[in-house]
Design a protein around this nucleic acid. Structure first.
Lengths: 207, 207
DNA sequence: ACATTAACATACTGTTTAGTATGTTGTAAA
DNA sequence: TTTACAACATACTAAACAGTATGTTAATGT
């Protein structure tokens, strides 16, 4: 009886492969840190091999840069800015989003923190180019927030005499701070303490 | 001419050696991350060799634990809590300390962030025992802050109807958030935005 | 003074690492 | 249908890595 050799014709697609590698890399880096993950680790989580990896990315650092630009930057925006557009009052939206995405998150999710903040803390001091990309991603987030706050102003939800840019800075800082603190203190009490304080701050800037 | 062999009698002291290793490790880990630093890197910055290192610490992780317990935890307290005791009004003290230690810091210092926060972000999700030590250090900081805020209450600087513990959480979170954001945005404008917002929050809790 | 041991130094090991060299094959254009 | 090359796969390398085995000597107690 002849054994039927299964010849799986592997298709080829540069973009899809890049995406698959980036997706795998995102999780590995998210959960274990950039320096804590090896190229082989990432490749193993993929249907491809090292050849594909280095065909896409000249070095491991370049993979990191692409992670920031192509995955984390748009993901952060989609997660924290886009949903605000559904809210008539952006200030309410910001608080609601924090409650939904952080307050109601399981400790198991929270323990890994924020993908962007993680890389900022780990890689910004280590590699200049990394820092540039991370800075751009952060500013993108801040600017999106600023736009929403300007909308809040126009609609009469935010005081005229506060700087939208300044508030945006503070709010994004609070996001990072929340994640950072909850990483070590995955405690609902801790979240509530932070949330209530942020809410108190919001009281002072609303129109 | 006979060359005089210089026989440097090396003294031995377990505690001093431990301190020297921890000091060297602190800087390396502070600037490059725990996973980004090797045991050999640390030893090289020392007057000793690998033998001394592994005589003190069974593994690299144990060095990390000692770093948190013996260096970072007391350092954080000495840097952020002890000085508050010089202030009649703790609330003023907190803002003054932030302005002095963060606002007036050179970008070169700021780029490395906060030693405690760095390790929280990098190691808390990776190693359980690390997380426990980091959590303890954070709580130690928060509790110190809480005590100062209770003093503020007693002296009539802080409103009676706010929770000292809650404010302490928020203030420590803000410290971490400040450092985290300034790591990617070493910009005086960014600091001022954060500082002014925090000050605004303080206005709502003062008696 | 001598023995004992703690506090190191030195040399090594197996594994993991990022990166490379080279081979194979799907695919698209001619 | 053939050709050419991009999109991978496979096998390898030199360096770095955490940790170990073993040697040496300063200090301490008797």
């Amino acid at each position: 009886m002849a054994t039927a050799k299964k010849v799986v014709k592997k298709t080829r697609n540069l973009e899809k492969s890049r995406k698959e590698i980036l997706d795998a890399a995102f999780w590995e880096v998210f959960t274990r840190g950039f320096q804590g993950v090896s190229v082989d680790d990432i490749v193993k989580k993929t249907s491809m091999t090292k050849g594909a990896f280095y065909h896409q990315f000249p070095t491991k650092l370049d993979l990191g840069y692409a992670l920031v630009d192509e995955v984390i930057k748009p993901m952060t925006y989609a997660r924290w800015i886009d949903p605000l557009k559904e809210f008539e009052n952006p200030l309410e939206g910001i608080l609601a989003q924090i409650k939904n995405l952080i307050g109601k998150a399981a400790p198991q999710e929270l323990q890994y923190g924020c993908p962007l903040n993680n890389l900022v803390q780990e890689m910004a001091p280590v590699d200049k180019e990394f820092k540039n990309r991370l800075e751009a991603a952060l500013l993108y987030w801040i600017e999106g927030m600023e736009q929403e706050l300007k909308r809040a102003k126009k609609l009469g939800y935010l005081r005229d005499d506060v700087s939208a840019r300044q508030v945006a800075h503070f709010v994004v800082m609070a996001h990072e701070g929340f994640y950072g603190m909850l990483k070590a203190l995955p405690d609902p009490k801790a979240f509530n303490a932070l949330y209530d304080s942020l809410k108190r701050y919001f009281e002072t800037i609303k129109a």
